[in-house]
């Protein structure tokens, strides 16, 4: 699923606003864009302080009209955007400019087995990191479309001898250092 196109539950225009609100946070905005409402709050905090999210905050979003599945789509958009934008900035290229939003409707495709179990959002079965947004199957697939070429193939993840230009130790060292800085302990 294209990051800037229509999503599962959000229109392309809504996803573009999520992208603008996340980018504003990375550019230094200390509070969310009030005109974006609760979706803007979610986008802002997922961008700048995801480790500070709590069940109570997600429940508060829900009480103000942002249901868990649309919240999950925002998680997917902001997360994938971070991959793209941090990579582009990392190599010294210019930020990708948003195109005009497509008018097509969201596709509405949800995973029939998604359930609210031990996370804040519906998940499918026993979810590992690359599958946590699979309640929205197209978002889940899009996550893996980034995760596999930029980290490693799912089939290689259990192989501690894996290596390419980097050794497995170098890959995991980068992963651990980044996760430490983000206070992510999963």
């Amino acid at each position: 699923m294209n990051l800037v196109g229509p999503g599962t539950l959000l229109t392309a225009t809504e996803r573009h606003q999520v992208i603008r609100d996340a980018r504003a946070g990375w550019a230094g905005a200390t509070v969310s864009n009030q005109t974006s409402g609760v979706m803007g709050e979610a986008a802002h905090w997922l961008a700048v302080d995801a480790e500070g999210m709590t069940e109570e905050i997600v429940a508060d979003f829900e009480s103000r009209g942002l249901d868990r599945l649309r919240y999950l789509e925002i998680v997917g958009v902001v997360a994938r955007l971070s991959n793209v934008d941090f990579y582009v900035r990392g190599i010294g290229a210019s930020e990708v400019v948003l195109p005009e939003p497509l008018p097509d409707a969201p596709n509405g495709r949800l995973h029939p087995d998604a359930l609210l179990t031990n996370m804040w959002v519906p998940t499918v079965g026993r979810s590992f990191a690359p599958q946590v947004v699979d309640a929205l199957p197209d978002e889940g697939e899009a996550v893996r479309d980034l995760h596999e070429p930029m980290y490693m193939l799912m089939s290689d993840m259990g192989d501690n001898t894996y290596g390419d230009l980097l050794t497995r130790a170098q890959i995991e060292y980068l992963a651990a250092r980044t996760s430490y800085l983000n206070e992510c302990f999963y």
């Binding site: 999210m53 998680v75 997360a79 971070s82 991959n83 946590v132 980034l146 980290y151």
Partner: peptide, 12 residues
């Protein structure tokens, strides 16, 4: 891992 951290922290 910027992406993965946000996914995991965002879904709890």
């Amino acid at each position: 891992f910027q992406m993965m951290n946000r996914l995991l922290d965002g879904v709890g």
